[in-house]
């Protein structure tokens, strides 16, 4: 699919198209008229200063908050589906997985149960009242955990993991329904450098293997520069720049609003 479009990043098949998205909270204009696209199989980084509106955009795509204005369409332009107005549940069933800025997992369960839960939901087996859940989708869950490097911790209660590991659990959960689009809000925050690279390398592998697209935010510039195909920069709720990593990196406005000297991250 990426083979047909090589001359320009934008002409590749579009998977998600965001148009004129706006949201305000009381008096605060968190997002005002944001447009961008995510191509199929693309890793797109959404970056910007704190409070720029990145998480708010994620929450609107995911169905958690309803935008004041704008449209969000999933799928290639010929038969795409409008996401605005759908519940997070429906958005997920259309193939959009997500991880949260502050990792959200099922705290009373073991690591593997967290993943099994997602697999059960994907298989629409939630209203099974009889067969023990423990035995179901176990192999598949272990496979996913292996992919995120948690196979050894599978039976531990998730509440006893360190934060970085919890993030990895969340990733495994988000991958359970083989999403077309993965939304990752600061996926590597709180992780050790080696694990950051590992996690993003894994994410990258998924992109190439399954054609999954990834939209992620990140404050760690190492990660952004090493792994993003393209970057969109938000500031005060507006897109101030977008393009390839090199182009954005040299943009003086982005430098001033966000990077600073870039020495420390």
């Amino acid at each position: 699919m990426t083979g047909q479009a090589t001359h320009s990043t934008l002409s590749r098949t579009v998977l998600l198209s965001v148009r004129g998205l706006a949201k305000s909270f009381g008096g605060v204009q968190a997002v005002r008229g944001v447009d961008f696209e995510v191509g199929a199989g693309e890793l797109l980084a959404l970056i910007g200063p704190n409070g720029a509106g990145k998480s708010t955009c994620f929450n609107m795509i995911n169905g958690q908050i309803r935008p004041d204005q704008g449209s969000i369409r999933l799928g290639n332009p010929d038969h795409s589906k409008e996401l605005v107005g759908l519940t997070p549940r429906k958005v997920w069933r259309l193939g959009v997985g997500r991880t949260f800025q502050i990792a959200a997992v099922f705290g009373s369960m073991s690591v593997i149960e967290n993943v099994q839960m997602a697999l059960l939901s994907h298989a629409r087996e939630l209203h099974e009242f009889w067969r023990p859940a423990r035995a179901q989708h176990r192999a598949q869950a272990l496979e996913l955990l292996d992919a995120v490097g948690l196979a050894d911790q599978a039976t531990l209660p998730v509440a006893t993991l360190a934060y970085g590991q919890v993030k990895a659990v969340e990733l495994a959960v988000a991958l359970a329904n083989q999403p077309r689009l993965l939304l990752m809000d600061e996926p590597t925050a709180g992780m050790a450098p080696a694990e950051r690279v590992a996690l993003m390398a894994l994410t990258r592998r998924l992109v190439t293997e399954r054609g999954t697209s990834v939209l992620f935010t990140e404050h760690s510039m190492d990660v952004v520069f090493a792994f993003a195909d393209r970057v969109v920069v938000l500031a005060r709720g507006e897109v101030i720049a977008q393009g390839s990593v090199t182009a954005v990196r040299q943009d003086p406005r982005v430098r001033e609003a966000y990077f600073g000297s870039g020495r420390l991250t």
């Binding site: 910007g48 200063p49 704190n50 800025q101 600061e186 925050a189 709180g190 404050h219 510039m221 609003a257 966000y258 990077f259 600073g260 000297s261 870039g262 020495r263 420390l264 991250t265």
Partner: peptide
């Protein structure tokens, strides 16, 4: 405890 986590690069510099 991890003051630089989740903070924009410019602010990380300010933190430092």
């Amino acid at each position: 405890d991890e003051p630089s986590e989740g903070v924009a690069p410019l602010i990380v510099e300010q933190m430092a």
